[in-house]
Design a protein around this nucleic acid. Structure first.
Lengths: 107, 107
DNA sequence: ATTATATATAGATACATATCTATATAAGGA
DNA sequence: TCCTTATATAGATATGTATCTATATATAAT
């Protein structure tokens, strides 16, 4: 069975950057405002803003505004779904798409 | 503790493309030659060759040559390590890097 | 030797993206 | 009202990449 490669590749693309992986790690213990996240990095504030936008657009990070601050948090349900997708992807199953096309006996 | 974001982002980057996710899925039941993989797609043979190179360079796919054929297979150890990394990443732990910088009390 | 076949490489094009500086927005405090 | 602060957006630049066509390589078959 064909899995949802398009949808999941969007989330994976958002994670395919070392700084954004670190941001996820930083958020893994609870929500933080942008300025606290920025403390961990050498890049500029607009660059962090860009990274947070990428993470939010794929749904893996949520945002809550309060006064001047933006509080970011991990969407743990989305995280779990991504990991489940990957586990399904690499596991051999009865209804795997590999069975949907002929394999000519190479050997 | 800082995780290995650089190393893992390379693997994740290789997976951050829907066609390559499908290739991983196709390989999840065992090794296949390039021509059998190509059967599943509309793109050209050089494009598949490019995708396989990307997957091999990050170590998630291995290749075995036999005569005219290249047999590709999933590196399941690498797959497991990636999934373990992601599970660690999104889990709150005692020694998370989020504790390594001050959090100014926003609220 | 010549031909056919499976795969890889080279080079081009079009598009995406990580970063920066400069500026805008929007909320609070003096 | 004016200034400060936190964050977002705009625009530019440099780099990366997914795809193609054309060609090379390497093995097998006739």
């Amino acid at each position: 069975m064909k899995l949802n490669y398009e949808e999941n590749s969007k989330v994976i693309k958002a994670l395919a950057e070392p700084n954004r992986l670190q941001i996820i790690d930083i958020l893994s213990c609870g929500e933080l405002c942008a300025c606290d996240i920025l403390e961990h990095f050498d890049f500029t504030q607009p660059t962090l803003s860009h990274h947070m936008k990428v993470l939010m657009e794929c749904g893996i990070v949520d945002c809550r505004k309060e006064g001047l601050w933006s509080f970011y948090s991990l969407n743990t349900s989305k995280c779990n779904k991504l990991i489940l997708f990957l586990m399904n992807l690499v596991t051999d199953t009865e209804d795997c798409i590999c069975k949907e096309k002929p394999k000519h006996e190479c050997k």
